[in-house]
Design a protein around this nucleic acid. Structure first.
Length: 212
DNA sequence: ACCCAGGGTCATA
DNA sequence: TATGACCATGGG
């Protein structure tokens, strides 16, 4: 990767941080809630995810063993507002049963990052972005999350065409930046904040107009 | 009445 | 390997 790309990514981070400050992500109380949210937010607006998580909590179902042992239909009814509820109820259960078989969330800390990532990717319904969101925001591992916001921003910066695969975009960030979970956390959160703040896709934006 | 949102899987060619 | 269909709700 060229030094110019790394320079742009550094500058972008500084601009966004100066503009918005610390973001305190992921919006969840516990690592387990991060994981649930990561599945529920697949291709879905976060406001809808909040309703689903609230419903799970009020039903006393926002717990690993409760979800793992429930009827799929019960979970589906609770998470209905987040969309794809039949798909996601099965995905949540697959994730929770995977967690059980790994000895719970605390036990994950004894696994190395890359094997853990492969293991997560083998869970039905967990793809690259969901796995990385879990690794970064729940497990505090130095993996950069590439989501739709990040792709759009990279395209706007001229750093991507749009057809690159997930891994190559992730590698851009991970080679440009030191492997620091707190930094990756903040950076991705700022990208989302910036997008929601209304960066106009094509016109000038004083925050993301960075030169090499 | 559209359109899209913090993806992922599966079937087909 | 590369597209396309499918999953489904709520807010603009």
């Amino acid at each position: 990767m060229s030094p110019a790309v790394a320079s742009k990514l550094h500058t972008l981070y500084q601009r966004l941080f100066e503009a918005y400050g610390p973001q305190h992500w992921w919006p969840a109380e516990t690592p387990f809630e991060v994981m649930v949210g990561a599945v529920l937010t697949q291709n879905t607006a976060w406001t809808n995810v909040e309703k689903a998580i609230r419903a799970l909590r009020e039903a006393g179902m926002l717990q690993l063993d409760a979800i793992a042992g429930a009827e799929a239909e019960q979970i589906a009814n609770l998470i209905r507002p987040s969309g794809y509820f039949n798909v996601k109820s099965r995905r949540l259960q697959a994730l929770c049963r995977w967690l059980q078989s790994h000895g719970g969330i605390a036990a994950l800390s004894r696994e190395a990052t890359l094997p853990l990532r492969d293991s997560l990717l083998a869970v039905h319904g967990i793809g690259p972005e969901t796995a990385d969101a879990i690794l970064l925001y729940a497990c505090e591992r130095p993996v950069f999350v590439i989501d739709a916001y990040t792709r759009r921003l990279l395209r706007k910066l001229g750093l991507a065409e749009g057809d690159e695969d997930y891994t190559s975009l992730q590698r851009m960030f991970e080679t440009a930046l030191p492997p620091d979970p707190a930094l990756y956390n903040e950076y991705h959160a700022l990208i989302v904040r910036h997008a929601k703040e209304g960066c106009n896709e094509s016109g000038d934006c004083r925050h993301c107009r960075v030169e090499a």
